[in-house]
Design a protein around this nucleic acid. Structure first.
Lengths: 127, 127
DNA sequence: CGCCTGTCTTGACGTTCGTCGAATCAAAGA
DNA sequence: TCTTTGATTCGACGAACGTCAAGACAGGCG
């Protein structure tokens, strides 16, 4: 079971269109919350938030671990662990090319999370 | 110490305009990450994500604890604890009116988080 | 082949988190 | 005033998290 990981009840996190209406528009169902919460949780650590930003804002859309690690006062294994967390949350994708490993962001998921948090002017912000 | 809580090193989480450019546009600085990560972390629990949605999507922009609690298979203290977490993350606001306590969402912060995750078409999503 | 560099995995440690039961505080009514 | 109802705080417990040191794996180069 080391090659096949737990089969997250994955929703269409890969879908390109937002999976659900804004959080402030309709109440988020339990199943949706169970799927999306881990993504927010993955972003809920300062190191991972910076890692995510460094990867997503990288020149060619991808960043090498060798560039990410020295940006923090943390050991390699720790950075690797955080990157794995981001990967398991579906936020990034990893690819090995020769000696180095490159991480790439998955814009679809960021879009979905952003859509969930978005607030149309005049929705519930009236009080 | 029961009435004055820890004084979070609050940044302009109350500002109405987005505090920072999208995560995928410019690298998020450590200080910004330290401030915004707790907000994502607070949303990183399925119960809190649903609570946030129930509050933000409520009729008059506010929800009574007495309406929130029975929606979960959790005890009152546990729901109260989650609400406190949301409050300390700056995501909601609490107000007592008579017997009941009402929670209201802070749309500005949701907007900021959404802006941080937003991706302009053609930013880093090219690979 | 053997060594070196880069990355990931493993095992362990202390801390934080999610949950509950019991106790406490706040407001309304008898 | 005393009781009742709603919400929070306190104390405790097991589970998960963030971190590291040490070891294992992968690929390039002598």
């Amino acid at each position: 079971m080391s090659k096949q990981q737990a089969p997250l009840p994955v929703v269409d996190l890969n879908a390109d269109a937002p999976c659900c209406p804004p959080l402030a528009q309709r109440r988020v169902p339990a199943e949706t919350a169970a799927v999306l919460a881990p993504a927010f949780k993955a972003l809920g650590d300062p190191v991972r938030l910076q890692l995510m930003s460094m990867i997503a804002s990288a020149e060619d859309g991808e960043a090498c671990v060798c560039d990410l690690t020295p940006a923090f006062d943390l050991t390699g294994p720790t950075i690797s662990h955080h990157l794995r967390t981001l990967r398991e949350a579906g936020l990034v994708d990893a690819e090995r090319r020769g000696t180095w490993v490159y991480y790439r962001a998955r814009p679809q998921i960021l879009r979905q999370l952003a859509a969930l948090l978005s607030i149309e002017p005049g929705a519930a912000a009236k009080a």
